[in-house]
Write a protein that binds this DNA or RNA. Sequence first.
DNA 1: TATGAATGAGATTTCATTCAT
DNA 2: CATGAATGAAATCTCATTCAT
Lengths: 219, 219, 219, 219
Amino acid sequence: MPEKEDIFEMLFENQENMTEKQKKILEAAVEIFSEKGYSGTSTSEIAKKAGVAEGTIFRHYKTKKDLLLSIIAPTMAKFMAPLFIRDFNKVLLSEHQSLEDFLRAVIINRMEYAKKHLPSIKILIQEIPFHAELRGQFKEHVMNKVYERLKVIVDAYQKKGEMIQLPPPSAIRLIASSILGFVIGRYLMFPEADWDDELEVERTIQFILHGLSVKQEEC
Amino acid sequence: MPEKEDIFEMLFENQENMTEKQKKILEAAVEIFSEKGYSGTSTSEIAKKAGVAEGTIFRHYKTKKDLLLSIIAPTMAKFMAPLFIRDFNKVLLSEHQSLEDFLRAVIINRMEYAKKHLPSIKILIQEIPFHAELRGQFKEHVMNKVYERLKVIVDAYQKKGEMIQLPPPSAIRLIASSILGFVIGRYLMFPEADWDDELEVERTIQFILHGLSVKQEEC
Amino acid sequence: MPEKEDIFEMLFENQENMTEKQKKILEAAVEIFSEKGYSGTSTSEIAKKAGVAEGTIFRHYKTKKDLLLSIIAPTMAKFMAPLFIRDFNKVLLSEHQSLEDFLRAVIINRMEYAKKHLPSIKILIQEIPFHAELRGQFKEHVMNKVYERLKVIVDAYQKKGEMIQLPPPSAIRLIASSILGFVIGRYLMFPEADWDDELEVERTIQFILHGLSVKQEEC
Amino acid sequence: MPEKEDIFEMLFENQENMTEKQKKILEAAVEIFSEKGYSGTSTSEIAKKAGVAEGTIFRHYKTKKDLLLSIIAPTMAKFMAPLFIRDFNKVLLSEHQSLEDFLRAVIINRMEYAKKHLPSIKILIQEIPFHAELRGQFKEHVMNKVYERLKVIVDAYQKKGEMIQLPPPSAIRLIASSILGFVIGRYLMFPEADWDDELEVERTIQFILHGLSVKQEEC
DNA sequence: TATGAATGAGATTTCATTCAT
DNA sequence: CATGAATGAAATCTCATTCAT
């Protein structure tokens, strides 16, 4: 999947012309925002942790909120990115790709993503409810597009007879709940518990598969 | 279930000797905290919405954080309450109570609860990550106790052969994800979408039942 | 002229419910704004001179600009006030009131006013060019109304044959220039020179009278 | 009047070795200072409008105040310039030059000057009250010298019997008020009103002439 | 009990100025 | 000469909390 790298690179191409200091600011902001929340974090705290003068923050980000957005926007973009890889459907929906393999791929992919970008994701989740513009952007640019893509996939598996004939929104909700429930529990709520990741992934997959299995009717 | 009323009353018994003003303060705080978050809310804003003087808040709550706790504590208590109703197990686990009926009862109950206490729950969810004491309390007093109770229930249904032999933590996680996923989608994320509540509840129940069904192995 | 007092009182009636501190803030602000200009004055400077905490300023005036407006608005009002005294025209334009007496009355009145409210007037003059809203208000509420009143007066004196038949705007401009030129020179530009006020007033009056005299044509 | 050109050239001789950027800076500074005042203008604003980097301003002007002075000093010089043209008195006070013609010449000259250098003049007027050094310089180098020159002229016209025997300061004040009152009204206060310039100039001249006429006593 | 003026610590933001490139 | 990132001091403004009434 070389395309994936391209897209991620594109999302970050601005990071290229960032100063060292600016990168430090961004890093510090991500860390502290995710720990204390946006409103609970002061710019002086960020400046101190980043090792820059407070004024430097405002040379790069007009306001504190700008700084928040410059963290959240790429996080949203990266969240969508994998869905827009060229040949995405072609590969995933090939006859040889079972729903089970698809789920496994998705869960593992999202787990890695979550592990890597934990703080940014925490910020995204925590702050979206408090910022109307973000909420709007999120629904419009992320939710809707993600939904469209997933609908196609659900349709395909339903046609292939691997998934019960539920309306796509309901099917997606149930699948997403199960996956996110796992990821959130694993990384956000109880990261320090000792998880057998592989086993839990399998359990989650089997739960979804059986929950949506066509065979359930036959039994 | 007259006991339920008793417990709720107990949780609120202090509300009895609350002055009108104090009640107004609490109401206003709940509303604004849930909209803007604790750190994003100023006490003067609360005072204005409550129609009291700024100083009055501090007559009743030593600090702003006190006010937050006075909202979150009862919310946590109420969250646990139904599990501690006398005869809880007796009733729920009677031979005549199938897993399906149990799930239906729980979902409907939690839905009503969520609808009624939406703002308080939002505050609970949003603020817990930022306040170590709360996190500690929540895990100790709520999570653990809830888990204990649920474990008993899971054990029972597994013994009755209505649920696959998953370790209880995993089973509980999967059930909870599905239910909370529904409730959060329904009330927090897309409250204004038009939901067919009854139908979605049934879909969620069937999803969980099949996902955890013993029969799955036979198929 | 008891009405005059009433109007002034009205303009200040809010000063009644001002705290001591608020009055101090206003006084300090007037003084420093007039010395250093609005932009050149810091709120901390004002607070220090007023003997209050800086926060106190913002309890009474939402912004620094608010504080400026709370100085300028009444200054504009007071500037207009004398023109709106009941019976103003009746008295001034009575047959027994010559243009000369009218001019003398106006100059002396405005001199006293200028002497008394020097700093506020300086602020008004200095800041109006920099604040579009003020400029708008000033033209709409002050200039236009003042002009209307003065036009009536000019018309009357022209009808009485005491003033040449110039278009009122031009006549008013010439009279105003002469009077303001005197007042500005006297109080703003060279307050420390030794002026023989009475003599200069007379010279100014005679200058205007002859400048606008009907008899000039006869000579 | 070739001398006039010489003097102006002298005043600007530094502009010759100005870089393009420096000229842009000066232009931008004049424009913004006159709109928002010195204190209300930031150097970064000037840099942006001038299309240069922030640092560039400080290559050419050690401080922001330096930049202000580099605008105000030549403006003051130019204000005085016409008075120091060689043969100034000779020409103006020739027997063939009546007071009326003199006034007409002065008014028209100052009008053209005002029209051309409006922003610089605004800055001069606005900033002088706030900068003690400027005030000192202005009185010493400009006011006094201008006064001396004008006194000579007034004396001459009084001797010629074209002007009433007022003390020169008073005469100059009255003349200056009338002229400046017109110019300020015309260009600073109501530039967008439709003025019949020629007519208003004549009215102003006649007003002054009659106001200071010797014949007034005869009437 | 309730008020709301007052506080001062601290938050966000601005800005003139410096300096390495 | 020119740049623009960086600075840090200071400016504006916010806010939880106190206290006299």
